[in-house]
Protein backbone atom coordinates (compact mmCIF):
# COMPACT_ATOMS: atom_id res chain seq x y z
CA UNK A 1 0.00 0.00 0.00
CA UNK A 2 1.45 3.33 -1.04
CA UNK A 3 1.81 6.43 1.04
CA UNK A 4 -1.07 8.07 -0.73
CA UNK A 5 -3.37 5.18 0.04
CA UNK A 6 -2.42 5.39 3.70
CA UNK A 7 -3.19 9.08 3.72
CA UNK A 8 -6.51 8.42 2.06
CA UNK A 9 -7.40 5.72 4.52
CA UNK A 10 -6.61 7.90 7.53
CA UNK A 11 -8.64 10.74 6.02
CA UNK A 12 -11.51 8.34 5.48
CA UNK A 13 -11.31 7.05 9.05
CA UNK A 14 -11.15 10.57 10.44
CA UNK A 15 -14.15 11.70 8.47
CA UNK A 16 -16.20 8.54 9.00
CA UNK A 17 -17.81 9.53 12.34
CA UNK A 18 -18.71 12.96 11.01
CA UNK A 19 -20.13 11.55 7.80
CA UNK A 20 -22.09 8.90 9.69
CA UNK A 21 -23.42 11.45 12.15
CA UNK A 22 -24.52 13.92 9.51
CA UNK A 23 -25.77 11.19 7.20
CA UNK A 24 -27.69 9.08 9.68
CA UNK A 25 -28.97 11.73 12.06
CA UNK A 26 -29.48 14.74 9.85
CA UNK A 27 -29.69 13.99 6.14
CA UNK A 28 -31.50 10.67 6.31
CA UNK A 29 -34.29 11.81 8.68
CA UNK A 30 -34.81 14.94 6.62
CA UNK A 31 -35.04 12.89 3.45
CA UNK A 32 -37.62 10.75 5.22
CA UNK A 33 -39.52 13.75 6.47
CA UNK A 34 -39.36 15.35 3.04
CA UNK A 35 -40.71 12.19 1.51
CA UNK A 36 -43.50 11.91 4.08
CA UNK A 37 -44.50 15.53 3.56
CA UNK A 38 -45.10 14.90 -0.15
CA UNK A 39 -47.57 12.03 0.45
CA UNK A 40 -51.30 12.37 0.63
CA UNK A 41 -53.52 9.81 2.24
CA UNK A 42 -56.34 9.01 -0.19
CA UNK A 43 -57.72 5.91 1.50
CA UNK A 44 -56.67 3.77 4.47
CA UNK A 45 -53.10 2.67 3.72
CA UNK A 46 -53.26 4.19 0.25
CA UNK A 47 -51.00 7.13 -0.43
CA UNK A 48 -50.16 9.19 -3.50
CA UNK A 49 -47.64 11.87 -4.34
CA UNK A 50 -49.08 15.36 -3.91
CA UNK A 51 -48.51 18.82 -2.46
CA UNK A 52 -51.81 18.61 -0.58
CA UNK A 53 -50.11 18.95 2.83
CA UNK A 54 -48.47 22.22 1.80
CA UNK A 55 -51.73 23.49 0.37
CA UNK A 56 -53.46 22.65 3.65
CA UNK A 57 -50.84 24.62 5.53
CA UNK A 58 -51.44 27.69 3.35
CA UNK A 59 -55.24 27.33 3.64
CA UNK A 60 -55.25 27.32 7.41
CA UNK A 61 -54.29 30.79 8.73
CA UNK A 62 -53.64 29.46 12.24
CA UNK A 63 -50.72 27.41 10.92
CA UNK A 64 -48.82 30.05 9.01
CA UNK A 65 -49.71 32.69 11.57
CA UNK A 66 -48.09 30.51 14.20
CA UNK A 67 -45.01 30.06 12.01
CA UNK A 68 -44.74 33.82 11.41
CA UNK A 69 -45.32 34.54 15.07
CA UNK A 70 -42.61 32.04 16.04
CA UNK A 71 -40.19 33.68 13.63
CA UNK A 72 -40.97 37.22 14.79
CA UNK A 73 -40.68 36.24 18.46
CA UNK A 74 -37.42 34.41 17.75
CA UNK A 75 -36.00 37.50 16.07
CA UNK A 76 -37.09 39.54 19.08
CA UNK A 77 -35.43 37.05 21.43
CA UNK A 78 -32.26 37.16 19.30
CA UNK A 79 -32.10 40.95 19.41
CA UNK A 80 -32.73 41.04 23.16
CA UNK A 81 -30.14 38.32 23.74
CA UNK A 82 -27.63 40.39 21.78
CA UNK A 83 -28.46 43.53 23.77
CA UNK A 84 -28.10 41.64 27.06
CA UNK A 85 -25.21 39.41 26.03
CA UNK A 86 -22.87 41.89 24.32
CA UNK A 87 -22.08 44.02 27.37
CA UNK A 88 -21.51 40.85 29.42
CA UNK A 89 -19.22 39.42 26.75
CA UNK A 90 -17.34 42.73 26.47
CA UNK A 91 -16.91 42.86 30.22
CA UNK A 92 -15.61 39.29 30.40
CA UNK A 93 -13.23 39.70 27.46
CA UNK A 94 -11.92 43.23 27.94
CA UNK A 95 -12.68 44.65 31.38
CA UNK A 96 -12.48 41.77 33.85
CA UNK A 97 -9.12 40.75 35.24
CA UNK A 98 -7.51 37.48 34.30
CA UNK A 99 -8.68 35.70 37.43
CA UNK A 100 -12.24 36.96 37.65
CA UNK A 101 -12.70 36.17 33.96
CA UNK A 102 -12.70 32.40 34.56
CA UNK A 103 -15.12 32.78 37.46
CA UNK A 104 -17.48 34.92 35.37
CA UNK A 105 -17.37 32.45 32.52
CA UNK A 106 -18.20 29.65 34.96
CA UNK A 107 -21.11 31.68 36.34
CA UNK A 108 -22.51 31.92 32.82
CA UNK A 109 -22.16 28.16 32.43
CA UNK A 110 -23.79 27.19 35.74
CA UNK A 111 -27.39 27.25 34.39
CA UNK A 112 -26.38 24.56 31.87
CA UNK A 113 -25.72 22.17 34.76
CA UNK A 114 -29.45 22.12 35.42
CA UNK A 115 -31.80 20.53 32.92
CA UNK A 116 -34.02 22.68 30.72
CA UNK A 117 -37.10 21.30 32.38
CA UNK A 118 -35.99 22.11 35.91
CA UNK A 119 -34.99 25.63 34.87
CA UNK A 120 -38.40 26.22 33.29
CA UNK A 121 -40.05 25.01 36.49
CA UNK A 122 -37.83 27.42 38.36
CA UNK A 123 -39.44 30.25 36.43
CA UNK A 124 -42.86 28.79 37.17
CA UNK A 125 -42.12 28.73 40.90
CA UNK A 126 -41.20 32.40 40.70
CA UNK A 127 -43.90 33.67 38.41
CA UNK A 128 -47.11 31.70 39.01
CA UNK A 129 -50.14 33.18 40.81
CA UNK A 130 -49.13 31.59 44.08
CA UNK A 131 -45.42 32.06 43.32
CA UNK A 132 -42.69 34.02 45.05
CA UNK A 133 -43.01 37.29 43.14
CA UNK A 134 -46.77 37.38 43.33
CA UNK A 135 -46.56 36.63 47.04
CA UNK A 136 -43.99 39.37 47.57
CA UNK A 137 -46.10 41.92 45.70
CA UNK A 138 -49.12 41.10 47.86
CA UNK A 139 -47.09 41.12 51.07
CA UNK A 140 -45.56 44.50 50.30
CA UNK A 141 -48.95 45.90 49.37
CA UNK A 142 -48.05 46.66 45.76
CA UNK A 143 -50.80 44.33 44.55
CA UNK A 144 -54.21 43.63 46.02
CA UNK A 145 -54.80 40.12 44.78
CA UNK A 146 -52.67 37.31 43.31
CA UNK A 147 -50.79 38.30 40.14
CA UNK A 148 -50.41 35.84 37.27
CA UNK A 149 -47.09 36.48 35.57
CA UNK A 150 -47.03 33.26 33.56
CA UNK A 151 -48.66 32.52 30.23
CA UNK A 152 -47.90 35.69 28.31
CA UNK A 153 -45.46 36.62 25.55
CA UNK A 154 -43.19 38.72 27.74
CA UNK A 155 -42.58 35.77 30.06
CA UNK A 156 -41.84 33.48 27.12
CA UNK A 157 -39.34 36.00 25.72
CA UNK A 158 -37.63 36.49 29.07
CA UNK A 159 -37.46 32.74 29.65
CA UNK A 160 -35.99 32.14 26.20
CA UNK A 161 -33.42 34.94 26.53
CA UNK A 162 -32.33 33.41 29.81
CA UNK A 163 -32.00 29.96 28.27
CA UNK A 164 -29.95 30.98 25.22
CA UNK A 165 -27.92 34.01 26.34
CA UNK A 166 -24.86 31.85 26.94
CA UNK A 167 -24.77 30.87 23.28
CA UNK A 168 -24.50 34.56 22.43
CA UNK A 169 -21.84 35.32 25.04
CA UNK A 170 -19.38 32.55 24.19
CA UNK A 171 -18.75 33.35 20.49
CA UNK A 172 -18.54 37.09 21.18
CA UNK A 173 -16.07 36.57 24.04
CA UNK A 174 -13.90 34.42 21.83
CA UNK A 175 -13.74 37.01 19.02
CA UNK A 176 -13.16 39.92 21.42
CA UNK A 177 -10.45 37.90 23.17
CA UNK A 178 -8.43 37.99 19.97
CA UNK A 179 -8.70 41.77 19.75
CA UNK A 180 -5.57 43.74 20.58
CA UNK A 181 -6.41 46.29 23.30
CA UNK A 182 -4.25 48.82 21.50
CA UNK A 183 -6.93 48.97 18.78
CA UNK A 184 -9.34 50.36 21.36
CA UNK A 185 -6.70 52.71 22.75
CA UNK A 186 -5.82 53.88 19.24
CA UNK A 187 -9.53 54.56 18.72
CA UNK A 188 -9.55 56.90 21.73
CA UNK A 189 -6.13 58.36 20.97
CA UNK A 190 -7.24 59.48 17.52
CA UNK A 191 -10.12 61.40 19.06
CA UNK A 192 -12.96 58.88 19.17
CA UNK A 193 -15.63 59.07 21.87
CA UNK A 194 -16.76 55.93 23.71
CA UNK A 195 -19.66 55.59 21.34
CA UNK A 196 -17.50 56.03 18.22
CA UNK A 197 -14.97 53.47 19.42
CA UNK A 198 -17.77 50.98 20.17
CA UNK A 199 -19.58 51.56 16.88
CA UNK A 200 -16.64 51.83 14.50
CA UNK A 201 -14.03 49.56 16.10
CA UNK A 202 -15.34 47.13 18.72
CA UNK A 203 -18.58 46.06 17.04
CA UNK A 204 -17.08 45.64 13.53
CA UNK A 205 -14.29 43.60 15.08
CA UNK A 206 -16.77 41.43 17.01
CA UNK A 207 -19.06 41.03 13.98
CA UNK A 208 -18.11 37.40 13.22
CA UNK A 209 -18.92 36.45 16.83
CA UNK A 210 -22.11 38.49 16.83
CA UNK A 211 -23.35 36.86 13.62
CA UNK A 212 -22.42 33.37 14.81
CA UNK A 213 -24.15 34.01 18.16
CA UNK A 214 -27.27 35.39 16.47
CA UNK A 215 -27.58 32.40 14.14
CA UNK A 216 -27.19 29.91 16.99
CA UNK A 217 -29.60 31.78 19.24
CA UNK A 218 -32.20 32.25 16.52
CA UNK A 219 -32.14 28.60 15.49
CA UNK A 220 -32.27 27.37 19.10
CA UNK A 221 -35.17 29.70 19.89
CA UNK A 222 -37.22 28.93 16.80
CA UNK A 223 -36.77 25.20 17.42
CA UNK A 224 -37.28 25.31 21.18
CA UNK A 225 -40.25 23.50 22.65
CA UNK A 226 -40.12 23.20 26.40
CA UNK A 227 -39.73 26.84 27.44
CA UNK A 228 -42.56 28.29 25.29
CA UNK A 229 -44.93 25.49 26.31
CA UNK A 230 -44.23 25.67 30.03
CA UNK A 231 -44.03 29.45 30.34
CA UNK A 232 -46.53 30.38 27.63
CA UNK A 233 -49.07 27.62 28.18
CA UNK A 234 -51.98 27.62 25.80
CA UNK A 235 -51.22 31.19 24.72
CA UNK A 236 -47.68 30.57 23.55
CA UNK A 237 -48.58 29.34 20.04
CA UNK A 238 -45.07 28.17 19.23
CA UNK A 239 -44.70 26.39 15.91
CA UNK A 240 -42.89 23.39 17.42
CA UNK A 241 -46.05 22.79 19.42
CA UNK A 242 -48.01 22.46 16.18
CA UNK A 243 -45.47 19.94 14.90
CA UNK A 244 -45.72 17.97 18.14
CA UNK A 245 -49.48 18.00 17.93
CA UNK A 246 -49.54 16.72 14.35
CA UNK A 247 -47.11 13.90 15.08
CA UNK A 248 -48.25 12.81 18.53
CA UNK A 249 -51.80 13.96 19.18
CA UNK A 250 -53.29 13.61 15.72
CA UNK A 251 -50.92 10.94 14.52
CA UNK A 252 -50.77 12.82 11.21
CA UNK A 253 -47.15 12.23 10.24
CA UNK A 254 -47.60 13.63 6.76
CA UNK A 255 -48.77 16.98 8.06
CA UNK A 256 -46.18 17.00 10.86
CA UNK A 257 -43.40 16.35 8.34
CA UNK A 258 -44.66 19.20 6.19
CA UNK A 259 -44.50 21.54 9.19
CA UNK A 260 -41.01 20.34 10.01
CA UNK A 261 -39.77 21.05 6.49
CA UNK A 262 -41.49 24.43 6.49
CA UNK A 263 -39.91 25.39 9.82
CA UNK A 264 -36.48 24.43 8.50
CA UNK A 265 -37.01 26.30 5.23
CA UNK A 266 -38.45 29.39 6.87
CA UNK A 267 -35.78 29.74 9.59
CA UNK A 268 -33.08 29.17 6.97
CA UNK A 269 -34.63 31.93 4.93
CA UNK A 270 -34.65 34.29 7.92
CA UNK A 271 -30.96 33.56 8.60
CA UNK A 272 -30.14 34.15 4.94
CA UNK A 273 -32.10 37.41 4.93
CA UNK A 274 -30.36 38.49 8.14
CA UNK A 275 -26.94 37.81 6.65
CA UNK A 276 -27.87 39.73 3.52
CA UNK A 277 -29.20 42.68 5.50
CA UNK A 278 -26.10 42.91 7.70
CA UNK A 279 -23.79 42.47 4.71
CA UNK A 280 -22.13 39.37 6.15
CA UNK A 281 -21.65 35.91 4.74
CA UNK A 282 -21.33 32.54 6.39
CA UNK A 283 -17.82 32.11 5.05
CA UNK A 284 -16.50 35.34 6.55
CA UNK A 285 -18.27 35.04 9.89
CA UNK A 286 -18.83 31.54 11.16
CA UNK A 287 -15.58 30.26 9.69
CA UNK A 288 -13.67 33.06 11.42
CA UNK A 289 -15.69 33.04 14.63
Amino acid sequence: MGNRDAARLSLFLLLAPLVLWIGLLIILPHLGIGYLSLREKVAPRVYQFSFANYVDFMREPIYWNTLLRTAVMSVLVTVMTLVVGFPIAYYIAKVAGRRSRAALFLLCLVPLWVSDLVRAFGWIVLLRETGLISGFLQWSGLARGPVELLYNDATVVVGLVYTVVLFMIVPIVSTLDGMDNSLIEAGYNLGGSRWTVLRRIVIPYAMPGIVAGCIIVFMLTAGSYLTPILLGGKNSMWFTEQIYEQFITRYNWESGSTFGILLLAFTSFVVWAGLRLSGQSLATTVAKG
Partner: peptide, 17 residues
Protein backbone atom coordinates in the same frame (compact mmCIF):
# COMPACT_ATOMS: atom_id res chain seq x y z
CA UNK B 1 -9.47 61.50 23.13
CA UNK B 2 -9.26 65.24 23.92
CA UNK B 3 -5.46 65.50 24.10
CA UNK B 4 -3.69 66.66 20.98
CA UNK B 5 -1.06 63.96 21.46
CA UNK B 6 -1.18 61.14 18.94
CA UNK B 7 0.45 57.78 19.36
CA UNK B 8 1.99 55.19 17.05
CA UNK B 9 1.53 51.89 18.87
CA UNK B 10 4.10 49.15 19.14
CA UNK B 11 2.14 46.90 16.80
CA UNK B 12 0.78 49.96 14.98
CA UNK B 13 -2.88 49.12 15.78
CA UNK B 14 -4.13 49.86 12.29
CA UNK B 15 -7.85 49.06 12.19
CA UNK B 16 -8.22 45.79 10.25
CA UNK B 17 -11.90 46.40 9.48
Amino acid sequence: NRRNVKMVFQHLALFPM
